[in-house]
């Protein structure tokens, strides 16, 4: 394999304008200005930015759905628009809202059709379907029509559908949006294992910081149609001070907790400055949730205890907002 094909995604000065009609007048909106990005084989990259920053536009251009207004793009070594059909054999894409499954058919039948679409031979189809069904725990609903699946089940089926032909590059657009904690967890674990085994390159857009943290080696941040950050998430968090918030539900109300390495972010459900539910913000790079909890437990008097706790992760929007604020 030549070195050129080791770069899975490469864009140079990639840009896209849209003409929109406002009443009688036509106006040009720049969705993506000039994007330079590179993703090497085997990387896992989070592509983040605010709504309207140009993420979906970029993905559509990477897949050959949209023609770029300017600049160059190579996906898996192909020019996406003219080489769309060859490219389709090498990429798998999950668009959050657009199903590639047949809604009135059982999931298994959708897989059979997709195997034919991608020209898999019988042995490979059997092997790959079996592998995905097992890893993604699809067997419980394989015979259920897609329209009857829960969101979490459907998303797992979508991911399997996108991976059926063992693409080099997997693009996920908001894969965990709307999923419950358990479904998110399962999906992330699967993706980690799949990448470890097959070395699939991953590009994902998300609003969920957890997705980026657990899945991505690198983050690309777009703002107003241009790349403003490329590097590790930790680096990004350092620049903007991303923090997590531990929400504690106590048995008895207490005055605001003072814990080293955390900032108190408000109390609820008590009177006279006391709070039953308290929020502590901490920097995951400096301390851990376990240490914070241990420190809190030490401070609780006899008869009081932590009844419940939750960790609120900063969403990507939040990080993005802070980066944007710092840039303006």
């Amino acid at each position: 394999m030549s070195t050129a094909t080791q770069t899975v995604i490469e864009t140079r000065g990639l840009g896209r304008d849209f003409r929109v009609r406002e009443g009688m007048r036509r106006r040009t909106v720049v969705a993506l200005d000039a994007l330079d990005m590179r993703v090497e084989a085997g990387e896992a990259v989070g592509y983040i930015g605010a709504n309207g920053a140009g993420k979906s536009t970029t993905i559509k251009m990477l897949c050959g759905i949209l023609v770029p207004t300017r600049g160059e793009v190579l996906t898996c070594g192909h020019r996406p628009v003219p080489d769309r059909r060859r490219l389709a054999r090498e990429i798998g894409v999950v668009f959050g809202q657009r199903s590639q499954l047949w809604w009135d058919l059982p999931t298994a039948e959708s897989f059979r059709i997709l195997a034919a679409v991608h020209g898999l031979d019988a042995a490979r189809e059997k092997h790959r379907t079996g592998e995905l069904v097992e890893r993604l725990e699809l067997d419980e609903f394989l015979t259920v029509p897609v329209r009857q699946l829960s969101l979490g089940q459907r998303m797992r089926a979508e991911v399997a559908a996108a991976l059926l032909h063992s693409p080099r590059l997997l693009i996920l657009d908001e894969p965990t949006i709307g999923l419950d904690v358990l479904s998110k967890q399962r999906l992330r674990e699967f993706l980690v294992a799949e990448r470890r085994e097959h070395g699939t390159t991953l590009l994902l857009t998300t609003h969920d910081m957890g997705d980026v943290e657990r899945l991505c080696d690198r983050v690309l941040l777009v703002d107003r149609g241009a790349l403003v950050y490329s590097g590790t998430l930790a680096g990004l968090s350092r620049t903007v001070g991303a923090e997590r918030v531990m929400v504690l539900d106590l048995a008895e109300p207490l005055p605001p907790l003072q814990v080293a390495g955390t900032t108190h972010r408000g109390s609820e459900g008590g009177t006279g400055g006391l709070g039953l539910r308290q929020r502590l913000a901490f920097d995951p790079a400096a301390t851990t949730a376990a240490k914070v909890l241990a420190a809190v437990t030490e401070q609780l008097g006899a008869g009081n205890e932590v009844l419940d706790l939750a960790i609120e992760e900063p969403d990507v929007e939040d990080v993005v907002r802070r980066v944007y604020a710092a840039r303006r």
Binding site: K60, C63, G64, I65, R84, R86, R89, F95, R98, S99
Partner: peptide, 10 residues
Amino acid sequence: GTLDVFYLRP
């Protein structure tokens, strides 16, 4: 947006 899915097939 279903048409976009057709673009992903060879």
